[in-house]
């Protein structure tokens, strides 16, 4: 009796086996461990460099604007009448990890050249938990100071900045960015717009902090905070910006209010920042677009 019971059980399982031989293929991913992509939607997060690489042959174009302060209200339409500091830049991907860029900011007429290299890539599975890169920018200030009866030589107009963006995408919604950065100016004085009264520091350092939280597939809330340390004054300068990213499937629009008028790296650390409690915020927006030109 026992044996026949066993027999029935065997037949039952074998029948199951036959029916289940190939009814469906086992679902398997071709590559399990993939790079984490679109931690931030563009190479710039408000003003900070991100670790978002360009592909080889990809050309990225951005126009950044920062208007006057909002404190005068409708008189100057919350700063928009004061005109904007505008930075145009082009960045081109030479490899999937290395890109070069050139930009021009209207504030102090600064031209800059630089590169961005991604040396660490966050992976979905095992591998690095963060992405990390390095960005080096050399700038030349070309403002004409002859109306002030002063002139600066070429060697007095140079700036160099280096930043080390590190980012992590925690989940589909939340990404975080930390950017230790240093900027060196060949010469500063009160006429240059990086100054605060009696401020003649030439070396500045800070840690940029950026984050974004996705509200839906195309809209994110963004934050930027950059405490900057001045070596001689031993004082901190705080840049704070709050914004929104809108991804339109081609362009990425970043709209924000910021305490700084600065748009390039060196000025972001060195330029004065408005006090939040004085309504010294400014409106600003970036338009980002990339093309694959190869």
């Amino acid at each position: 009796m026992k044996k026949s019971k066993l027999f029935v059980v065997c037949v039952f399982f074998l029948t199951l086996l036959i029916q289940d031989v190939m009814a469906q293929l086992q679902r398997e991913r071709v590559v399990e461990n993939r790079p984490v992509e679109l931690t931030f939607p563009t190479p710039k997060h408000i003003n900070l460099h991100t670790t978002e690489p360009l592909s080889a042959g990809e050309l990225y174009y951005s126009i950044m604007h920062a208007f006057g302060t909002v404190e005068n209200g409708i008189t100057d339409f919350w700063g928009l009448d004061q005109g904007a500091n505008i930075r145009f830049s082009l960045e081109y991907g030479i490899t999937d990890r290395f890109s070069v860029f050139a930009g021009r900011s209207s504030m102090d007429k600064v031209y800059d050249l630089g590169f961005r290299y991604l040396y660490l890539q966050q992976m979905t599975g095992s591998g690095s938990p963060v992405s990390a890169g390095v960005v080096l920018t050399a700038g030349l200030m070309t403002e004409d100071y002859s109306p002030f009866n002063v002139s600066y030589s070429f060697s007095e107009r140079n700036q160099l900045s280096v930043s080390f963006p590190v980012s992590r995408k925690f989940n589909d919604q939340f990404s975080l960015l930390l950017v230790p950065m240093v900027a060196v100016f060949s010469y500063t004085n009160e006429l240059l717009r990086i100054k605060e009264p009696l401020q003649t520091d030439e070396v500045f350092a800070g840690v940029g902090f950026g984050s974004r939280y996705k509200l839906d597939s195309r809209t994110s809330v963004t934050l930027q905070y950059v405490p900057s340390y001045r070596f001689e004054n031993e004082a901190f300068n705080h840049n704070l910006a709050l914004g929104m990213d809108f991804e339109t499937g081609g362009h990425v629009f970043q709209i924000f209010v910021s305490t700084s008028r600065a748009l390039n790296d060196a000025y972001l650390l060195a330029a004065p920042n408005g006090r939040i409690d004085d309504y010294a915020f400014r409106f600003g927006f970036n338009i980002n677009r990339s093309f694959v030109i190869r």
Partner: peptide, 25 residues
């Protein structure tokens, strides 16, 4: 019985920016 599947991450549109948007967005 018929069964087919594709790992969508393997799709290549010959434009890496577009591929990235396709996968992520």
């Amino acid at each position: 019985e018929v069964d087919f599947y594709i790992d969508l991450a393997t799709l290549d549109t010959d434009n890496r920016r577009r591929d990235r948007d396709m996968r992520q967005v």
